[in-house]
């Protein structure tokens, strides 16, 4: 046990960049004030690790202490690894009244029934989010603290964000979540990215949206004296219109930082210059992936600059609208694989 605690601590210190180490340790209750004061953060990582390992002996820290430290770090620096969005469906009547203590108890007991060896730690963050850290074991092995799953759930909302989950653990987590939040089912929201905040903002629609209006800029023209109003209007009109359409599709201002969107297309190839392919029965299969440091801003730029035609195709505007970034597109109605039916022109 002692040895594994040391290993978890070593791994954790290696993960935390030195500048963040100080703030993380200061929020942690594992060290005395004197011990905190004795830390010299100008030392090398190796020296700091040695120091903390000796403190570990001294203070008799257990794995519990270390996982607590890990949670502090992860909650402050959530934008690591891949986060996946899930959505809870069909709430029961009392779903809205689930509060933290009840949820905590329920979740732990439900998961404990499903997996024999599992270590769950739940913490409430200031922004109302509940953070759950799960270290999984199985019937024969102790919980593995080196590969934990993190789950973030905002109580009274249907959204759950998960990182570090394997396909084997997925049904177990789903069941525990569904039962403890008083819902009937949970589904993959088909949204994933490296930034938890972006995924959350997209699903909860917490970004600056623009709604269509018939009067895009009602007062602007009256007060302006323009040298050649006709030319100005001619040039500004379509540009401003495109910009408006782009903002309506993707939002205004800073947009949630999504890194990619993937479309699996199995649609008919239609090209009036190519009869052979158009007459072919089988769909044309391809996968299209869009990538950018901020995908929504790139796409908005595409539409505003005219590289993408406006109005923006539903395929692209579905990313913010439906809050998802993985799509399967087929021509024929809802089959088993079709997750989004495309209305072809």
């Amino acid at each position: 046990m002692e040895d594994s605690t040391r290993r978890v601590l070593q791994r954790l210190i290696r993960r935390i960049p030195t500048p963040q180490l100080k703030t993380t340790l200061e929020k942690w209750s594992g060290m005395t004030v004197a011990q905190r004061g004795s830390m010299d953060y100008t030392q090398t990582k190796w020296a700091l690790t040695e120091k903390l390992l000796s403190l570990c002996e001294e203070n008799d820290w257990t794995t519990k202490h270390i996982t607590e430290l890990e949670m502090i770090y992860v909650i402050d620096n959530p934008n690591q690894g891949m986060w996946h969005g899930f959505q809870l469906l069909d709430p029961e009547d009392d779903a809205h009244s689930v509060e933290l203590t009840q949820f905590k108890e329920q979740f732990k007991s439900h998961l404990g029934e499903l997996v024999r060896h599992v270590s769950v730690k739940i913490k409430k963050h200031t922004d109302e989010a509940v953070w759950i850290r799960i270290a999984w074991g199985d019937s024969f092995s102790r919980p593995n603290h080196l590969k934990p799953t993190y789950v973030v759930h905002h109580l009274q909302t249907p959204y759950v964000f998960v990182t570090g989950l394997t396909s084997k653990q997925k049904p177990l987590l789903s069941q525990a979540l569904v039962l403890s939040t008083r819902h009937h089912t949970i589904k993959d929201a088909n949204l994933s990215g490296r930034k938890l905040t972006a995924i959350r903002d997209l699903l909860m629609k917490q970004y600056q949206q623009v709604f269509p209006t018939n009067f895009p800029s009602p007062l602007a023209e009256k007060n302006e004296t323009v040298s050649n109003p006709k030319i100005e209007r001619e040039q500004a009109g379509p540009g401003a219109h495109r910009h408006q359409m782009a903002c309506e599709a993707f939002g205004d201002g800073m947009l949630p930082q999504l890194q990619s969107a993937v479309y699996k297309l199995e649609t008919k190839f239609k090209d009036h210059t190519n009869r052979t392919m158009t007459e072919r029965d089988e769909p044309f299969k391809c996968i299209v992936k869009f990538e950018s440091t901020n995908l929504l801003e790139s796409l908005r730029y595409c539409a505003a600059s005219g590289i993408a035609s406006t109005p923006v195709t539903p395929l692209l505007s579905s990313i913010p609208l439906k809050g998802r970034n993985y799509f399967v597109i087929t021509d024929n109605g809802p089959g088993p694989s079709s997750q989004m039916h495309q209305s072809q022109n």
Partner: peptide, 15 residues
């Protein structure tokens, strides 16, 4: 575009 957009287009070989 700003920020640059990368598009990867992978086509089924038979198609």
């Amino acid at each position: 575009v700003v920020p640059p957009l990368q598009v990867t287009y992978t086509v089924n070989p038979q198609d």
